[in-house]
Amino acid sequence: MDIVQFAYPFLGQAILEPNILLIQKCHYNQSVMYPLHRILVCLDLSPIDQTLMEYTAHLCKALPEAKVYFIHVSKKLEIPEEIKKMFPNVTGPADEALEKGINDEASKYFANKCDTPYEAVVKDGNETEQILKWSQVKEIDLIVMGLKKSLKGAGTNAAKITAICHASVLFVPENASFKLDRVLVPVDFSKNSAMAVDQAMALKKLGNVDVLLQNVYKVPVGYHYTGKQYVDFAIIMKHNAEKQMKTFLSAYQINEEDVTQVFNLDEDDKPADVIFTEAKVQAADMIILGSKGRTMVAAMLMGSVAVELLRVNKEIPYMIVKDKKANMGFMQAFKNL
């Protein structure tokens, strides 16, 4: 009997050989399973908007079929004095004036740099509700939001929007410069992980990106009942993770030569911190994580790791990948309640 089974017989084979072969396979080399054609960029009329526009423009160079919508939601549509100073040519009705100002600003990053069409949408009301509404109206594949560390401005209600929306979400830190040479994908060998890997491999195909697959493992409570020391059991768990990674790659038809495998021990039960630290060590340009959404409750509540990464990571662009069709079905059911 395997020593991990001996310590945790109630887990059966789950910890050793997850039945991932029964999961629908992702053929990244045949088609892009989660295309990013329609992008919604959330603006709050603060300096981070310029970063979001520039980053999105660079991203669209690798997405030839993309279309971008810039959305700003205000509780009350009127033009503040500070905005008039930012856009001195803004005149007329507030929504039209702001749309013109946003389009003019976007032209600095899109005109003559990429052929991606774009347009501004300015609405009043509840920010979260409007963003969720327009993500459905425009059948959005990717929502882009800013990650603020020091810039002033309310920013978008990132956690709530991310938890409910059907689309994938990309968080761009303030002052981020676009670079996409290396992406880190944390994997736990689930279907959610496969979605994230599939998206990373699609980016690799489009832009020759190095993909690093990271598994964060830990020594389970009760290891001492086996008579093993912590260090010895950590080695056992790493070997088990390596075995699971091999099975995972085989199940989803991913060549080991196409990815770099990274294994990290989580000694403090803080996987988000381990992920962020490794991303910095590897000089990753983006972190891509698969979102939980297999049930109505799971679709409403993001996984704890996804939430924690929002808290600890304010430096590296971070994408949460969702199954758009499954989540749109959930959103429709939720609306009909």
Rank of each mutant, 00 (worst) to 15 (best):
N112I: 06
N126Q: 07
T156N: 11
E127K: 14
E129W: 12
T128D: 03
T162C: 08
I79P: 00
K100G: 09
K152W: 08
I161Q: 00
I71H: 02
T91M: 13
H72I: 00
A154G: 06
V68G: 05
I131F: 11
K160S: 14
K113T: 08
E105R: 11
K67N: 09
N112S: 10
G146Y: 02
A66G: 02
V169A: 03
T162M: 07
L98S: 07
T91I: 12
P93C: 06
V122H: 09
E65Y: 15
I71K: 01
D104M: 08
A111F: 15
L132I: 13
E65D: 15
E96W: 08
A111R: 15
I164F: 13
N157T: 12
K160Y: 14
V68F: 11
K75W: 10
I102Y: 11
L151D: 07
L98T: 08
L98Y: 07
D124I: 06
I102W: 07
F87H: 04
V73N: 00
K108A: 11
P173F: 04
T156W: 02
S150N: 10
P80D: 05
A163N: 07
A159C: 07
I164D: 02
K133Y: 15
F87A: 14
C165D: 02
T162N: 03
K123W: 12
G92L: 12
I71A: 02
A154T: 10
V121Y: 02
I83D: 01
V137T: 12
C114Y: 04
K133D: 12
A94D: 01
K76H: 14
E96R: 14
E105H: 14
E127V: 09
S107V: 06
D124T: 13
K108V: 07
D115M: 04
L77W: 09
A159T: 14
S168K: 01
P93R: 03
E105Y: 15
A66L: 01
L147A: 12
L170R: 00
K84Y: 12
V169M: 05
K76A: 15
Y69R: 13
D141T: 06
V122I: 13
V73Q: 00
